[in-house]
Structures are given as structure tokens and as C-alpha cells.
Design a protein around this nucleic acid. Sequence first.
DNA 1: TCTTGACATAGAGTTTACTCTACATTGTAT
DNA 2: ATACAATGTAGAGTAAACTCTATGTCAAGA
Lengths: 125, 125
Amino acid sequence: MEYPIGEFSKLTGLGIHTLRYYEQEGLIAPERNSSNRRCYSDKDLTWIEFIKRLKDTGMPIKEIKHYAELRATGDPTLSERMEMLVQHRQALDEQIAQLQEHKIKLDEKIEFYRNEIERVNNTNL
Amino acid sequence: MEYPIGEFSKLTGLGIHTLRYYEQEGLIAPERNSSNRRCYSDKDLTWIEFIKRLKDTGMPIKEIKHYAELRATGDPTLSERMEMLVQHRQALDEQIAQLQEHKIKLDEKIEFYRNEIERVNNTNL
DNA sequence: TCTTGACATAGAGTTTACTCTACATTGTAT
DNA sequence: ATACAATGTAGAGTAAACTCTATGTCAAGA
């Protein structure tokens, strides 16, 4: 299947302007029809979903662009791309670990508040 | 103990400019000495550490500012502050869950690459 | 044929969170 | 007394990632 940009926008949840911006930044290169309109494919859809994943895990656009370039080059870049993903997984692990630590501290703080509120209530009896 | 901004910057890892910016944005209000220099206290240090935690877990400056205002008001705002933290913990839980899902998919992708690289190697024998 | 809606490009504007510059003041060591 | 390093304010500049505006094209329905 092929989709014009409006439909692809709905499929991806990404806003027409954002899709054009991504193309300009070299993240994606949809086909064009005879009237120069963008024709996004199902492959583009899979690819955009992966881009979103990279973004949501904190990879900056420039780095995704680099990955996209390697991808466009094909097989000779397979190991370099894998290397990037392995690095990124490492970063993601650390990110998750840090958030979990933050969560523990946040829970403690909430517990502290619970006690404070209790204490203040009792003081005002 | 009290610290001038340069020292406090080192203690917090936050850059002098950033500390002044945070003050301007209403996140922190250090004392001033007779010559108008900022005198950060240990309480400020604890508070900044908490600000960093909120920031690192994705809370925007504006919301932290709101929390800071409630904090400055004192006891009457205890439950509202706790409410904010409970909400934020919820968001954090979701954030962590999402990252964990992303990690699983990323691992799958890496596994896919491992197989692809193997396949390409064998094809070129 | 005329209008309308989706699409095209180029470039300007926005938001967030800093980060830096210019210039004045002050405390301290020589 | 003077030099200098740290600090002060006000305001400009930066980077990332969008987001919007102006203007033009084009295919399809009334």
C-alpha cells in the first residue's frame, strides 16, 4: 500500500509538518508520484516506527540521520549499524536504571509527605 | 555551611549561569550577604538535588517552579505538593514501562542484525 | 469552467532550557 | 594603592525539534 502524506500522518501520529521536517533532515525519503506528491509505503511505516523508538529513547535527530544514511547504503554497513544499536542499548539500560533510582527516592519523598501531613493534622487538634 | 555561587556550582555540578537562571525562574532563592552576593546553604543544596531529580525525570521548569512556590508557602500546601508528586510518580512509572518495552524491541532488532550479518557472511563464502 | 482541498516549497517563528557577553562592583593578595 | 579573581545584572545568543505562514500547483467534484 501507498499513502499520501495526510494519511501517513494519521497512521504515524506524526503531523504533516514533522514528516516533511524529517525528510528534510534526511531521516526518511518517500517515493514521489508523477505530480511530485510523496508516496509513503508500508516499509516507510515500519521505518518511521523504528525512528520513533530511537527518538523516544533519547537518540538525537542527527544520530538517527546517521543511522538512516548507513541504512540507505545497505549491507556493507550492517555491522556499523548494529554497533550503534548496541551502544544505544547500553545507554538505554543506564537511563532505565537511573529512572528506577529516581523512583525510589520519589517514593521516599512521598512517604515523608504522608507523615508530615499526618503530623500537621495531629498538631492542629 | 554557606557557599558562594562558584563553590555551590561545583557542589551541584550546575554551572553558575544555570544557577542564576534557576533563581530567575523562581526555582531557588538563596540568601544574600551584605554585598549582595548569593549565600547558598545546605538546605539549598538538598533542594537543588531534588530539583535535579524532578528535572531528570522529565518535569518541566515551569512545573518545578510551581512546586517551589507551594514549598515557599509552607505547611498549608503540603497535600497539594504531595498530590503533585503522586501524579509525577505515576508519569514516571509509565515512562519506565515504556522504556522497558523499547528495550525489548531494541534487543530484538539487535538479534535480527546478528543474524543478518551472519547470513551475509555465509552468502559471500 | 470554477472552486475546493490536499499537497508542494521556502523560509520564518516558537518553545525549552540553557549559555554566553558586556560591563559594573567588590574582596583579597601584593 | 592596585591588580585581579569572583561576583553582580541585563540582555543577547544558541541548540534542538518542531510548527507555522505565505504562496503556488494540481486533480476532482459541482
